[in-house]
Design a protein around this nucleic acid. Structure first.
Lengths: 224, 224, 224, 224
DNA sequence: TATGAATGAGTCTTCATTCAT
DNA sequence: CATGAATGAAGACTCATTCAT
């Protein structure tokens, strides 16, 4: 496909570089923001350039081509966050509910601090033609989800998990309960008139739901 | 001069039309499939035409333009499903858990029968720049979510709902637990090696989770 | 260019045909109106068809193709008018001012009765790429202008014409004084706030100008 | 997203720019020539590009879109000429025949120097669907014609104008006598076999006609 | 380090035209 | 008589990309 791969000013990783060259960081920031707001396919390089008050040619100067920009996004912004989450979960021990509590708290805090992430993830990773999907699957080959699934399976075997649950689907449910609400914020806040709900409320609500389900006194509502 | 809206062959509603002329239906089917798999913005009309073994000009013959194709998708395929869900929920009574059971069952069955819907919905309705979003908000102004939120609020006031939950967020969680797993199927089935899980398993799992949360005996795990 | 020339229902010239088939006349009328208002190149057949409440395919059924429609316009609507003008001028005798009076009166009356003609003529005949130009030059090979020029040349030789005038340019001036004001009506009526001026005023004004020029004292120059 | 107006290389007004970069000027020249010869609607951008040995994409690079090209034509080529005419007429004093002499001379010289102008003006400004019409009316809101009309009205009131003339129509006639002959050159030169007539002949003829009309004996009407 | 100029490839759209019915 | 279905060709416009400077 690509004959040669320019990609000139690849920051030598040791140097802090603040004086010159964080131009590139700015460009990545702008790209992230626009890709997140409007979608990757909907955002031409020229739009990013315009927003950053820069020529489209400069985008190529820094990133070589469109694909490489996406690579940069993944490598420099998304992957580190995933790694961080992985480490925080590893530190959470193996007791299922502690793990879940760590997961929910970590994810929601992460998303609250990086609001560009959930929409991007939902759009470009989750679904089949997602433009970041293969990149994520190849580079950050996610060990988090399978590891979680394994732990839930063990917990279920030990009787430490609601027996009605499927361990794998439990992981899926967890992600659905954390990623989805943050990704879809813009619609449910409008639709349900819920501008006042903050991250902490969200975390509490989610933990309450995961803790004991919907019912108020819980025990007798288990399906027989 | 040229500001009129073609949209010629508007199926006369009485005729069954199977022999000739469901060409249009075929085109909508193909569009739905490609939009769902690859995203709306990523899918040129020419790709749809190619898939349907037809010229791009024919797309314009039937739909006038790209926007009208999206309108057709919304009006003819998505909106009716939404209406159906609304009706089924209305029939479910107002007892919270019965309502939830109906919601989960209806949604998951719907999604299983129309597998193109969840990815499309997640990408093009829920996130900010989604290309179907405004269309949905304008035509099918969703009354389902607000209605559910109201019922949960009442239930909570009556003590019939886990007091740790926020009524509005409960709706969000419900959607996250039903829409997300179906939308993200293609990724978690691969990642978690879970090709064997069927719709019924999914429903049971979700209802179990909503019924009593994660814990096996549950009551004492409620956060204070 | 054209392999075969369909042109099916070419009215057999003797038959009056009122019951069926003046459909075709209607189409020509509509075409004339739209071509005149918006220009030939700017008017697609489909626009004419739409205006006439007819399918574009019918346009082809009647006229074979776009070129033939223009032929029809020329042959059936414009050429006869030109011929009529020629005959009326031939009847005007050879005295220069009588001829001019006849020309001005005939032209302005003609244009007032067929308001679609001047804009069409100006746009599509006068200038080099005009879409009716070659048609006119080939079919109605205008003998009027050369004939007039000849008569003015004779008159000048006999001392019966202002010696400062060029006979050929006199023809050009005449056309400029009659065709132009009618073709440009829509702009000067607006610009000069002159909605009240009628055809007769126009004729009188033009004859006065041609009779004695701009200057105030000209009684003896009127033809007896 | 894509509603902005590119129009990039907006010549920095100080620089003379002859060596490199007058590409844009060349494109405007070619556009003017083709629009004038064939009509605006009849001339695709690709034709202009082809003539200029350039890709159609470059047209968009310089002008953004078709509309902006027309804007450029109007602003950079036509409007300045109109302004110049206005200034020259303002300098001509208010005596009617002096004014007319100035008008005829100015217009015909202008048209002789810019032969692309008359056909363009006639086709695209004067007639109803003209593609430059609104542009002219909006930007160069023509004060020339109304001003002339006013002066003729005054002159008539003072007895300094042929009483048979209508002041407003006098303006129309003047334009008809100057614009029309130049716009229609290509046809009457061919039709009347008049390739030898030059601008000066045209001016003299027109002034003679306006001075004393068609009749042969008019010595006293010459301006002193 | 940065950019203006330029382009090829592709997308959306329009339109004249054909043809079977 | 008349039309619905279908298409090829062309036009406007966008965009990633290249390259000389």
């Amino acid at each position: 496909m690509a004959t040669t791969t320019p990609q000139r000013p690849k920051r030598s990783p040791g140097r802090p570089a603040k004086g010159r060259g964080d131009q590139r960081e700015r460009l990545v920031d702008v790209a992230l923001a626009l890709f997140s707001r409007n979608g990757v396919a909907e955002t031409p390089l020229s739009a990013i350039a315009r927003r950053a008050r820069v020529t489209p040619a400069l985008m190529h100067y820094y990133f070589g081509n469109r694909e490489h920009l996406l690579d940069a996004l993944m490598d420099e912004r998304i992957a580190p966050l995933v790694v961080k989450v992985g480490m925080q979960l590893a530190a959470a021990g193996s007791e299922p509910f502690a793990l879940v509590r760590a997961f929910v708290t970590t994810m929601m805090t992460l998303f609250a601090e990086n609001p560009w992430l959930p929409p991007l993830w939902v759009r470009e990773v989750l679904t089949e033609g997602g433009l970041l999907r293969e990149r994520l699957l190849k580079r950050v080959a996610p060990q988090i989800a399978p590891a979680l699934a394994r732990r839930f399976a063990e917990a279920k075997a030990e009787g430490a998990l609601n027996p009605g649950l499927d361990p794998k689907l439990t992981v899926v449910s967890l992600i659905g309960l954390t990623l989805f609400p943050l990704a879809a914020q813009s619609i449910w806040r409008r639709l349900l008139d819920a501008d006042d709900i903050d991250t902490q409320t969200l975390i509490n609500h989610t933990l309450a739901l995961l803790g004991s389900g919907l019912g108020p006194v819980a025990p007798e509502r288990n399906p027989p």
